[in-house]
Nucleic acid binder design. Structure first.
Lengths: 245, 245
DNA sequence: GCAACCTCTGAAGAACCTCTGAGCGACGGC
DNA sequence: GCCGTCGCTCAGAGGTTCTTCAGAGGTTGC
């Protein structure tokens, strides 16, 4: 299911070992999906459903990154964070929180280099944030920094800027995430289901043609009056590729 | 080019070794956040929760700078300072004190080149003070001195002066710190949470739209009638960037 | 103690984004 | 070629997010 990306090339940390991530969440479905996606990106994944198990596991697994649900059955998220920090000196933590739990004071989290994502989130968002954390922590993920390039189309993820042939292109949030997903998988046909799974939040009941709609928005902004880069593969999905092929 | 990319790059002292800072504070949350932020700026960080531990640690760790809470469970801050001074000849000390605590006594101390910040403080404030101390002590932090430049916008941190296109701009304290944070991260989208975590004090329960408000103040002063440099990225945050993109 | 200034709150309105439904067009099989 | 299916796009409702105003309360400096 999650086989996009050159499948089994594991990511590597600065020490040469493959990058390890620990997913801590008590909703089995969510854990499943997250783990799958992360594994598909080349991470070595483990998961735990509560804080105690997680901490025990972390001791031997020694993850480079942790995806941590703020609400756990046993221990509170901040506690887990502190413990983790104490035992592993360099670890990046990405929190998952309910939208209105932000008020519960996650203050200071982002200042310490960590980050958080509010539910419901899209996989793209989680993966992107994680990449950002890693990059900032110096465990280079992609060597070429935060520039995504396909043909004359360039995306700067940090600045959230997209440029084609020198012209700056304004994108909405969803448009941006869709394009990012396409650009991360150039020359590869992505099905609408795949796109929906990655770009839209996991609880989206999408019955309608959202993907087509947003593809059409993107085309208007990106392909407008130029040689098109977004191609439809009838009955299968869409591909993004530079003209030359 | 000019951009200060988030350093995985450690800071370096005059002797070439990475800059070391020791955080001495007995509130775990605060220590956590401070350490995280400092590490994120490229410091090598250690922390201690009381004076005795701190002094022992300092002996082997030999920090270039120390962030020291005035109120410690065991020894009094002044004592610690004296001891530190005796064992490390060149060390910069930044005190953390309660607002109404013994300002006069501390005033004497700062004469020695050290500095202090009163609680509750913002991370920006602590980090900036620390940079100032280092610079004054000759352990150059940023080679280009204390000028922040983004496009035609210039900030002199020491003088607390901001100029755009030749015109001097008056800013309140919060406005200044917000702008400084933006200017330290040009062309990079900062989320409201990040801004809140850095610019507002750590104990701020901020429920309302303070960030938006202050962004609007800044815009009125900085972008007024010019090509805007502060841009909203809907659903994500704000970016500061010079026009030429 | 007063004036000047600053910070934050609440609320209202504006701007913007997302998704739905529907109609039309394009493609491919027969 | 004709028809059915699949894909494209329009227009708009509804929701979310941003902006700004006006003012209360606090702080600072005189």
């Amino acid at each position: 299911m999650h086989t996009h990306r050159r499948p089994p090339s594991p990511l590597h940390g600065p020490d040469g070992s493959p990058l390890r991530v620990l997913v801590i969440d008590d909703e089995p479905d969510l854990t499943e999906v997250l783990s799958g996606a992360l594994a598909g990106e080349g991470w070595e994944v483990r998961s735990a459903a509560d804080g105690t198990t997680a901490l025990a596991l972390a001791r031997t697994f020694r993850p480079h990154a942790v995806v941590l649900d703020w609400m756990l059955p046993d221990i509170d998220g901040l506690q887990v964070l502190r413990q983790l920090r104490q035992e592993l000196k360099t670890v990046c933590v990405l929190f998952l929180t309910a939208r209105d739990a932000v008020e519960d004071r996650i203050a200071g989290i982002t200042a310490g280099g960590d980050d958080y994502v509010t539910k419901p989130f899209s996989l793209e968002e989680v993966l992107a944030r994680l990449r950002g954390l890693l990059r900032r922590a110096g465990m280079a993920h992609e060597p070429d920094g935060d520039q995504l390039v396909v043909g004359d189309l360039v995306m700067d993820e940090e600045a959230r800027e997209v440029v084609r042939g020198g012209a700056l292109i304004e994108l909405s949030r969803t448009e941006f995430e869709l394009l990012r997903f396409l650009m991360r998988n150039p020359r590869r046909v992505l099905s609408k289901a795949q796109i929906l799974d990655r770009v839209w939040s996991y609880d989206f009941g999408g019955r309608s043609h959202v993907v087509e709609l947003y593809i059409s928005y993107l085309r208007k902004k990106i392909d407008a009056g130029r040689t098109p880069m977004i191609h439809t593969v009838r009955g299968v999905g869409y591909v993004l590729k530079p003209e030359s092929s």
